[in-house]
Amino acid sequence: MKLTKLFNDFFNSEKAGGLILVLATILSLCIANSPWQTAYTNCWQFSFAGHSVVHWINDGLMTIFFLLIGLELEREIYTGELSSFKNASLPVIAAVGGMIVPALIFLLFNTGGPGQPGAGIPMATDIAFAVGILSLLGSRVPASLKIFLTALAVIDDLGAIIVIAVFYTSTLSLVHLFLALGVFAVLLVLNRLKIQNPVPYLLGGIVMWYFMLQSGVHATLAGILLAFAIPFGNGDERSVSYRIQHFLHKPVAFFILPLFAMANTGISISSDWYAGLTQNLSVGIIAGLLTGKPLGIALFAYIGTAVKFCTLPSELKWKHIIGAGFLGGIGFTMSVFITLLAFTDAVITDTAKIAILIASCAAGIIGYLFLHFTLKKTTPGDTI
């Protein structure tokens, strides 16, 4: 199966970005538990233009990350793995299972309790980490598995945005929301008029982001909307979509996501940190990511193929889907992102973050080892 240059660029940027994310997280944890802890924490709370630095990162820079995700999703829909129903149905139904089952497992432990708002936490997949772990397996990874995992993670992130917009909007200003949607409508008109200059779209995106921020709906939704307003054309290197997506790869992978990790994983770990792992919140997160993700992804994919809704590519075996399911359990960035929206109590937030880090590390290790031995033993006629 031939992979496009832009897909390879996207895959490689996420691969390198995964390593940078690991280093950024380790550095953040080290500083947060050193004599510089107070200064480190305070630097992220420094106020600029009415908002803290961490707020600008989470609501501002992360919008650019979702713009990149939206552009990749658009490309997959128009010319990639999602361009036909036959190809799209498998990662779509797998992603749906990978969101529903973890959320149900989480609610099994947290319904009616203080952790209930965190049901969206184990639904997420960190695309950079997941792709980064898969890339460590080298040339043994079939192209179809790369595409499946990337499409799965992109759809998962889109699902996370929908969950954020629907369930994590505490206050809603209809006036600002309609203004944001009005700007989006204007950008769609520019698209229909075949305006190819990227400047009007980017300026309009900033205005839409501002109104979305004021509306109470999480501002990062503006990134996804902007992606689908930007002209795709025929998707070649001259198209506006291609140029913006190509430009964003490295800033997102090497600056925005590591900065997000630095700002949000500076957890001061107490001597009894492990006590929180027995709380329903932690159990729900760990069980959701480690069990719910692979179970939901594999189960829904299997049911989809059993009822002829989708087909399994010839290169893939069911054990590869299970391995990809474990990698889907690496929630990290997106899970932390949703945690910050779900809880305001610092103790609960830190407890959730520790559970996310543990579950994501375990999912990455299990997924890597599972695929390492699976891919090594795979032969053309192999079956489950």
Rank of each mutant, 00 (worst) to 15 (best):
T150L: 15
L371P: 14
L73Y: 07
I155L: 03
E74A: 14
G235T: 03
K317E: 15
A342W: 08
T383Y: 12
T171M: 09
V101H: 11
K2V: 14
F167S: 10
L257H: 00
S241M: 07
I206C: 06
I338S: 01
T4P: 01
L371Y: 14
V307Y: 11
I244D: 05
F48R: 00
P102I: 04
I105L: 15
G159F: 08
V166Q: 00
S173P: 05
G223N: 05
I303A: 10
Y368S: 00
F228R: 14
A301D: 10
F232R: 12
F228C: 15
A275D: 14
N234L: 06
T344P: 00
L316W: 03
A39L: 09
P380H: 11
F228E: 14
L289C: 10
F247P: 00
S270K: 12
L6A: 11
Q196G: 06
S89K: 05
A49Y: 13
V347W: 03
D382M: 14
V336G: 05
T171I: 13
G18L: 10
I121Y: 06
L290W: 05
G328F: 04
L27M: 12
F7I: 07
V252C: 07
I100P: 09
H218D: 13
P91F: 08
I155M: 01
G18R: 10
V347C: 05
